[in-house]
Design a protein around this nucleic acid. Sequence first.
RNA 1: GCGCCCUUAGCUCAGUUGGAUAGAGCAACGGUUUUCUAAACCGUGGGUCGGAGGUUCGAAUCCUUCAGGGCGCGCCA
Length: 575
Amino acid sequence: MNIFRLYSKKIRDNITALDKDGVIKTPKDLSSINVDVPPENIQSDISTNAAMVLSKINSKSPLVVAEIIKKKLLEDNDISNIDILKPGFINIKFKPSFWNLFLENIINNPNEFGVDSSLTKKNFLIEFVSANPTGPLHVGHCRGAILGDVVSNILKFNKHNVFKEYYVNDYGNQIISFTKSVFFRCREIVLKETFPNDENLYPGEYIIQIAQNIIKNNPKIKFDNFDNISNQLTELAVSESLILIKENLKSLGIKHDNFQSETEIVKNNEVQKIVEKLQKNNFIYKGRINAPESEKSDNWVEREQLLFKSTDFGDDKDRALQKSDNSWTYFASDVAYHNHKIERQFDTLINILGADHAGYIKRITASVDALTGEQGKLICKVSQLVKLIKDGKLFKMSKRKGDYITVEDLISEVGKDATRFIMLSRTSDVELDFDFTKVKEKSKDNPLYYVQYCYARISSVFRNINKKINDQINVEKYDFNYSEDEIKILKKISQWPLVIEIASKKLEPHRIPNYLYELSSDFHSYWNMGKDNEDKRFINKDKKISNDKLVFLKSISNVVKSGMNIIGVDTPESM
RNA sequence: GCGCCCUUAGCUCAGUUGGAUAGAGCAACGGUUUUCUAAACCGUGGGUCGGAGGUUCGAAUCCUUCAGGGCGCGCCA
């Protein structure tokens, strides 16, 4: 039950009714009329700006319009009183019976509360992580991974179908140097040959492990000639990498539905296919592009090449599809991959990209627009960098030195829950400070434990009355009367559907941990009131709990639980 | 040079997609435990929302412009 949406409709209906009766004039578009959460210092449950919006067209002051609307709204059985304030806000206070109805709704449909039922069910494909299959994941990959996972969860919460995909870049030059690195590590092991000192090779220790596994499982392979075995070796090495990557993802609590190979797309001539398709529609031509304006552009050789007209769709320059050796560029096969997504009949495609790929968004959305002939099929979401702070200092990762923190290190040191909660706690648009010492801290400084503690405290109440927090409760009579302190929390609970609505519309998971923190804070305050005031305690002297308190607690724990489920963080019953 | 992101309290950040006296946490100071979990709570101080214009009943939020910071710009992936 979304009370804001409910009253948004009611208020609009009342206004149109007033228009019909000739009392008031209304514009055609009522969309700027909002129902909002009033500021904390105002004693009301919801508020609307309707009078201010209608003031001009009626050439009356907002206060006068507000009085007219107020009179009409007071006919509503659930409203106890209405205050009109300064510029023209209409502040509405509900009768206790309305909160009863609200809570009854939550208790009887615990899995529906917050779900945005106004949306039509859609099929989403979300591509995320897609790190090169050249080794295990490191901390830098985590944020995007968690972001993608939670965006999926939010959409699923709203009953959409979500298909989670990982694009495996197992084609191209980087994979060749990765395979070569594995090759030389194999020679090192089998032929006792020293590993070459070559900047293009991967130095990481894990390559040795991969080489050992390959040798162990494929005793027949001879490592005398690279070209003879390169295809086979690539396949083996990539699959070893994917094993590592999948383990990393699992430890983060993430599971993709599909791993799509780039090589497979290229082998099936899908790149050829889309090039022809785009050619038919005149989106492709042979031409020259200018050297990039970057500092390292000295060795730029201008040449005639196959280009995609991404400038037709807002990109700054057209993009190359073919290299000078006639093989496809990364972009070309990615366009084919996106066509592959389109052909699988999804309504919307989502890509989660790292900040370093932000410049890529225009060209890839351009290609999707060209292929579908519509706009907005593909949504790209960027996750900004994570700044690692260790012992109060900025920790710089360097792949060349092999000096970086893997997901394995991270999870074993700080754990899945803290990692997920902290990584999600800021807008993805902003750089995030990830302070190892703080994230491990078990105190109020760490918002994860603050929220978990809220749930654990509620669990302890249930334990004390020999009930379980997860049990569905049956309340015969909904006839509660809550104090202002309790209504304050009920109001916070009523905002949960709003949080979901916005998080889902804008694909902004950070709103969930922030909201859960606020709700927990309200709860902890209330809990401590019990010290001075017996009425505020949940369990009374006879070791019993009133229906009021039971329903109240249950509604809080329901919301905390579903919020934590969405962000993929556990809710222990005791801490 | 161009594109994207950012600039809010000493520090780290929220701010319901234009609303009311701009909010949290940390840090500082002072208090709360014979009582459902103190991993908690309460109180005090702290602001020219980077600057300047504009749009309107109303701007941290939208537009223009300037300044500062980050990321990116390739026949790489």
